[in-house]
């Protein structure tokens, strides 16, 4: 017992070396929000992302390291709309940090700032893993990013009033660059309008809504359920009648189903970055859309 106690005490002394850092500790649930926080917060924020582009944000374990990070956070930025329902509520309950609980300024739910698509009329577990609050993958529409950025800037000022001018200036600059980039992307992607694409999961609803792309089918028989051989065969029949241009999947999804369907149908497979870090040159939100559109148009020739 005594050994245990002395072990605890030594550990505490070793560990309680909290670095003096930026004004706000930001915990982003996904890399896209870490990137946005860095765009707007600059040197006044210290950002960590709970997940990477190689991890499925629906299925993350409430690991001890994440609890420790939430414990010290001043601001949580998450997609919301139940995307993180399997792990975030647990992190919030276990971190004993009153500043970042739901309904406090320290919890920023990005999808709550914009209109959501795919809101189900009826909900039932037999329909698969669907989100009552609508599709949470809102970051794939640059127009919605713009709205969220504005709301996030207001939130940063609320939490760190001393940095008001700094945040406002950075937002204006970001917004200008973003508007220019959006014009460019829309031009580059104009040819994609009306294109039919098979998806792995309905992650792409907002991107497709923005670019006028049609979903030709999903590899998951129901949201959240793995692909089956039977489902692929029925998908092949559907695609025979109404063909699609490509099959897309993210870095965190197993490409096997997409490849199999490609073998069955001859439709090419495209891996899209989905979020920041999802491809070699995707270092921020700008390059995320650059690469996404490049890959989509590359196949659509």
């Amino acid at each position: 017992m005594k050994k245990f106690i002395s072990l605890f005490l030594t550990s505490i002394m070793l560990l309680v070396a909290i670095p003096a850092t930026a004004a706000l500790n930001v915990f982003a649930c996904e890399p896209e929000w870490a990137s946005l926080a860095n765009e707007l917060g600059g040197e006044r924020v210290k950002t960590v992302s709970a997940t990477t582009a190689y991890q499925d944000p629906h299925h993350i374990e409430a690991r001890p390291s994440l609890i420790a990070k939430v414990r010290r956070a001043d601001l949580l930025i998450c997609s919301g709309a139940d995307l993180e329902v399997g792990w975030l509520p647990l992190l919030q309950r276990q971190a004993s940090n009153a500043r970042v609980l739901p309904n406090t300024p320290g919890y920023f739910e990005a999808s709550a700032m914009v209109e959501r698509l795919d809101i189900p009329v009826k909900i039932d577990r037999s329909m698969g893993d669907i989100h009552a609050a609508g599709n949470p993958h809102v970051h794939l529409d640059p127009r919605r990013i713009q709205t969220i950025a504005k709301a996030l800037q207001v939130r940063l000022v609320e939490l760190d009033p001393a940095g008001k001018e700094y945040y406002q200036q950075r937002f204006v600059k970001f917004n200008q660059r973003w508007q220019q980039a959006m014009n460019k992307w829309q031009q580059q992607a104009s040819q994609l309008k009306g294109t039919r694409i098979v998806v792995h999961h309905r992650d792409w609803v907002y991107l497709f809504d923005w670019l006028g792309i049609e979903i030709a089918g999903a590899l998951e028989p129901k949201p959240g359920l793995p692909t089956t051989a039977f489902h692929l065969v029925s998908l092949k029949q559907t695609l025979k009648a109404k063909p699609a241009k490509m099959i897309v999947h993210t870095t965190y999804q197993n490409p096997r189903g997409a490849k199999r369907l490609s073998q069955l149908t001859g439709i090419p497979v495209v891996q899209l970055p989905y979020t920041v870090g999802g491809a070699e040159h995707v270092k921020d939100l700008f390059s995320l859309f650059d690469v996404t559109i490049q890959r989509l148009t590359g196949v659509n020739k």
Binding site: V16, I18, P64, A68, R71, Q94, S96
Partner: peptide, 13 residues
Amino acid sequence: LTWLAPTDVYFKL
């Protein structure tokens, strides 16, 4: 009663 330390390494007592 539990206490979670404000540290990088998760430590809960």
